[in-house]
Structure formats: structure tokens, C-alpha cells
Computed example of a mutant assay.
Amino acid sequence: MRDYKWLHEYCLNRFGSAAALEARLPEALPDEALRAISDDRYLSMISLRVFRAGLKHSLVDAKWPAFEQVFFGFDPEKVVLMGAERLENLMQDTRIIRHLGKLKSVPRNAQFVLDVRQEKGSFGALIADWPVTDIVGLWKYLAKHGSQLGGLSAPRFLRMIGKDTFILSDDMVAALKAQGIVDKVPTSLKERAAVQAAFNQWREESGRPLCQLSMMLAYTVNH
């Protein structure tokens, strides 16, 4: 694989200047900001990610105020009490997206948030304290304990809330293949560990967060 110096120079050549490059790169929130986000906001963002999956984001976002209403502001202690009958009734509510499987995920994820709160004090503590040097471990944890957070949903949720992560987008996977780090979409623990190790090396070389390195690497794919 190439070192960070090559990656940086490639992106500088593509965009023409350091300022033009920096303007395109995302920022991750500091740990204290992630810890300060309330549990209801985490549940809202988890749910938003679940409903966005496979749907046009603007469509989901436009309906989200109605979701906030029907799910009690995503207060996990209230949402967890919503039973099957209540969810079935929501299937008649035209203000929201009526997808029963996704609707069922909301109280399940409310229980997940409450379980984490009991163990860690808050969901934000889990997110803030998880080391970015093992961000793929956090993906696995969210997919295992949450509902409908497999595939790219866990890393995309983390990006939405500001937790530093890379995302295995199509361009990213193509770039990882070009670097000889993987030969296909990394799905196994071994393959994802190899990707994590590569990002840890670039992070150490550059001092940049994973989210910026992820986007820079994706920019090396020619369109």
C-alpha cells in the first residue's frame, strides 16, 4: 500500500490546492461532544439511518418531524413500551414511512440504548469512549446488539453523529483494491482488520481523522 505522503500529493494534484482539498473534507466531533449528545438524539439518529437505508434521504428527512411526534421525541423509556398493536396502528399513519420491519426496529433499538445506558451511563459514553483504532469493532457491536444496523448502516450512522469512522463505499473499496489491501468488499473480521490496520497507519503518519483519510482515499478513484 502507498503511504500518506502519496495520498496527500494525489489529492492536492486533483484539487489544485490545500485549501480546496480541506474544504471538501469532513470533521469528526470531539469525544466530549459525542458524550454530551442525549440518548433520545442517539435513538433518533439510529432510527433515521434505518429508515434512510434503501430510500431517498430527502424523502425520509422531510417526514422526520412526524416521526419525532409519533415516537415521543424518541425518548427511549417511552418508545420501549410501544407494543405490536401501537406499531400496527402506525401503519395507517400517512405522515410517516409505513414499513413495518423498520417501525419494529425503533422500540428494539430503544431497548438497546437503555441497555447501554445501564452499563455505560449513557449511549454517548459508549460512542465517545470506543477507540477509533478499532472502529470496525464498534461496527460489529452495533450490528450485533442493535436492530437493522448491519452492512453500511452502522458506519453511516456513526458518520451522521460525528464519530470518526471510515465508510466502505464503492469508491473506497475500489481504492482499497488498488492499494492491494483487499481483493473484494471486506466483510470478514480478517478483511476488516486489514483495512483498519491500513487506516491506523495513515492516521499515525498524518494525524488526520479516519473520516478525512476515508474521503481522500475515495478521491483516488478516477471517474
Rank of each mutant, 00 (worst) to 15 (best):
L12D: 04
E22V: 10
L25E: 04
E27K: 12
E32W: 13
D39Q: 12
D39H: 12
R41Q: 11
S44V: 01
I46V: 13
S47E: 10
R49F: 00
R52T: 05
A53W: 04
A53H: 03
L55P: 07
H57M: 11
H57F: 14
S58N: 10
D61H: 11
D61P: 02
D61T: 04
W64G: 01
P65G: 00
P65S: 00
E68C: 12
E68R: 15
E68I: 14
Q69E: 15
V70A: 05
F72T: 01
F74T: 02
D75G: 00
P76V: 02
V80P: 02
L81P: 06
M82W: 11
G83C: 01
A84E: 15
A84H: 14
E85M: 08
L87D: 07
L87W: 11
E88L: 14
L90Q: 01
L90V: 03
Q92S: 12
Q92I: 00
D93I: 05
D93M: 06
T94C: 03
R98S: 07
R98N: 13
L100Y: 15
G101T: 08
G101M: 09
K104I: 09
V106Q: 01
V106K: 01
P107H: 04
N109R: 04
Q111N: 04
F112N: 09
V113W: 04
V113Y: 09
E119C: 01
A125D: 11
L126A: 03
A128H: 09
V132E: 14
V132D: 12
T133D: 14
T133A: 13
D134T: 10
D134G: 03
D134P: 04
A143S: 13
A143G: 03
A143D: 10
K144L: 09
S147M: 07
G150H: 08
L152A: 15
